[in-house]
Design a protein around this nucleic acid. Structure first.
Length: 580
RNA sequence: CGGGGCGUAGCGCAGCCUGGUUAGCGCGCCUGCCUUGGGAGCAGGAGGUCGGAGGUUCGAAUCCUCUCGCCCCGACCA
């Protein structure tokens, strides 16, 4: 491709609307343009990168035995009513009526459609397992689209769905997809990590998220420091997102201290954990705080050790609630009759749940249940009881890996893939069944597997950039090589640039020739900005001693070579990529 | 939806508080000259419903009301 003929509008300045680096660079480098909030057009460069990701995804999905289909964007309400999600999905589902007044929606995901397709066409265990996927535009009317391609309303997703007999089959398919995802993100040239994830409202037994590691990521991951396994010296490999990550369960002390009598103490004006502990001369580990949450609107008291933080999703799961929010001061008083800051579990009339750490504590401090008072030497069971106990807190750096006891470290990541074992929830809702070998009707055991294809592009940039622009990994770059003709007026230089260009092109390399009538500085800046891995400069060095320059975008390493040498070096680099 | 901010030329901004001539600046764009290894220089030029509607006023980018759009922080997600 010739730069002079390409729609590639680069920007010198940062667009004011873009805050995060991938968004900024995608706009500046002429990859995308916004049409409206959360909806973007892909320009040639953006599309080329998208296609690279898609191609890798296709190859690996096919290799793993999945078949590609293409499902409708517009879906009838009936199906969604049948699955129950017409009501459950909420305003994120963009609904409309057609001219016949039929209710419809834009597909935010395709469990309904695929399940319908399969129930109509697959009836026998002989046709199983079946694994179908598509790469397609999704629309979710997000509450708040942001960060450019990172969270658009319209985005491109690979979604796959598997249908198996029984659990074992489904587990096998899940493992295949897990492996395929590893191959996909490795081939993309990204640093990533698979983490255990919460299964969310979909339920199901397990789920993994694939996270591209980047400091700018929105999610936090807890990862076991490798090589810390105490016994066998193997890398442990434990990794989970914060919604799921757990520490080791607390250990009951071998000799439990004597239980001291509960005593009320005056703590005037001391409401915060820090103030109370300082006033009483204790550590936060010796205090149990009582927080009030509204679970689906109903107040619940939640007990946590003073230095711990609640984890909403874990709490949600323990309570079986759809939604939990922290109550405000007024709601706290309404629910308990006690002003916030002095709340304790004794004598509460609302349900009480506790973090499992509370179980091993003795003689701790709690709120006194009235203004300006706390109690010392409180003890679970003796002084109060709780409804449910479980892990409902955020893990901290002090926690240890639940599988090997090693240290946990925290990293930021961007979720680019998510795989779920769905079980039979959709097949039951939509009555999708097959006959097993004994002629008995069975529900399909399903799994679903998503990859945010357009988000991968954004995540790749978040992970790979510098002050000058994008640094795409070779497998994702829209062009592998950019040739700068620094003197389009000079016949010798132009001849050499053109020859390199056509030879590379004929050899299957995706190459961009900057043949514009621009000053060298402009070409250098643009080449850096758009992030092409290899830059070949044909300029005065060619006139001097018939050499060209190859510069690697990432390392900045420059080699001065004769064109034939440059050619074979570049071919070798690009060859290596297509083999992987 | 709650909280914060912004809409003035393709992009980035000033002007608004304290109304008053043809509404400015930088970048980009067009023409010419010149220049050619890290976003050059000079000269000339095109490009604006000041987001929209209503109001106040002799007069509104500027003041008031309503409205639309966009961005950022929270709950959702690939």
């Amino acid at each position: 491709m010739r730069y002079s003929q390409m729609l590639l509008p680069t920007l010198k300045e940062n667009p004011s609307e873009a805050e995060v680096v991938s968004h900024r660079l995608l706009l500046r480098a002429g990859y995308i343009r916004k049409l409206t909030s959360g909806v973007y057009s892909y320009l040639p460069l953006g599309l080329a990168t998208l296609r690279r990701v898609e191609r890798i995804v296709r190859e690996e999905m096919n290799r793993a035995g999945a078949q590609e289909v293409l499902l409708p964007v517009v879906q009838p309400a009936d199906l969604w009513i049948e699955s129950g999600r017409w009501v459950k999905y909420g305003p994120e589902l963009l609904r409309f009526t057609d001219r016949h007044n039929r209710e419809s929606c834009l597909g935010p995901t395709h469990e309904e459609v695929i399940t319908d397709l399969v129930r109509m066409n697959v009836h026998s265990y002989r046709d199983l397992p079946l694994n179908l996927y598509q790469i397609q535009t999704k629309f979710r009317d997000e509450i708040r689209p942001r960060f450019g391609l990172m969270r658009g309303r319209e985005f491109i997703m690979k979604d796959g769905y598997s249908f198996d007999e029984q659990e074992e089959g489904a587990n096998l398919t899940y493992q295949k997809m897990y492996d395929a995802y590893h191959r996909i993100f490795s081939r993309c040239g990204l640093a990533f990590r698979a983490v255990e994830a919460d299964t969310g409202t979909i339920g199901g037994s397990f789920s993994h998220e694939f996270m591209v590691l980047a400091d700018t990521g929105e999610d936090t991951l807890a990862i076991c420091r490798s090589g810390q396994a105490p016994t066998d010296g193997q890398t442990c490999g434990y990794a989970a997102n914060m919604e799921k990550a757990a520490g080791r369960p607390p250990q009951m002390l071998a000799s439990r201290p004597e239980l001291l009598p509960l005593t009320k103490v005056e703590t005037p004006g001391k409401r915060k954990v820090a103030a109370v502990t300082e006033f009483l001369g204790i550590s936060a580990q010796e205090l149990v705080k009582t927080m009030i949450f509204l679970a689906d609107g109903k107040p619940v008291a939640v007990l946590l050790r003073g230095d711990h933080e609640a984890q909403d999703v874990k709490l949600k799961n323990l309570l079986g609630a759809v939604d939990v929010v922290l109550a405000d001061d007024q709601q706290i008083f309404d629910a308990t009759g006690v002003p916030s800051g002095y709340l304790g579990p004794v004598g509460l009339k609302i349900p009480v749940v506790a973090d499992r750490e509370i179980e091993v504590m003795t003689n701790f401090v709690i709120g006194g249940g009235e203004k300006n008072y706390h109690c010392r030497n409180a003890n679970l069971e003796r002084d109060f009881s709780v409804g449910k106990i479980g892990d409902i807190r955020q893990v901290t750096a002090e926690d240890h890996c639940p599988s090997c006891g090693g240290e946990l470290e925290f990293t930021k990541g961007i979720e680019v893939g998510h795989i779920f074992k769905l079980g039979t929830s959709y097949s039951e809702a939509l009555k999708a069944t097959y006959l097993d070998s004994s002629g008995k009707e069975q529900f399909f055991v399903m799994g679903c597997y998503g990859i945010g294809v357009s988000r991968v592009v954004a995540a790749a940039i978040e992970q790979n950039h510098d002050q000058d622009g994008i640094i795409f990994p070779l497998p994702l770059a829209p062009f592998q090589v950019v040739i700068l003709n620094l003197s389009p007026d000079d016949q010798g230089i132009t001849g050499a640039a053109e020859e390199l260009y056509s030879t590379l092109k004929n050899r299957g390399v995706d190459v961009l020739l900057d043949d514009r009538d621009e000053r060298p500085g402009v070409k250098f800046k643009d080449a850096d900005l758009i992030g092409i891995p290899f830059r070949v400069t044909v300029g005065k060095g060619f006139l001097r001693d018939a050499t060209v320059e190859i510069r690697e975008r990432r390392s900045g390493v420059v080699q001065t070579l004769h064109p034939e040498e440059a050619l074979s070096w570049l071919l070798a680099q690009c060859e290596m990529m297509s083999v992987s």
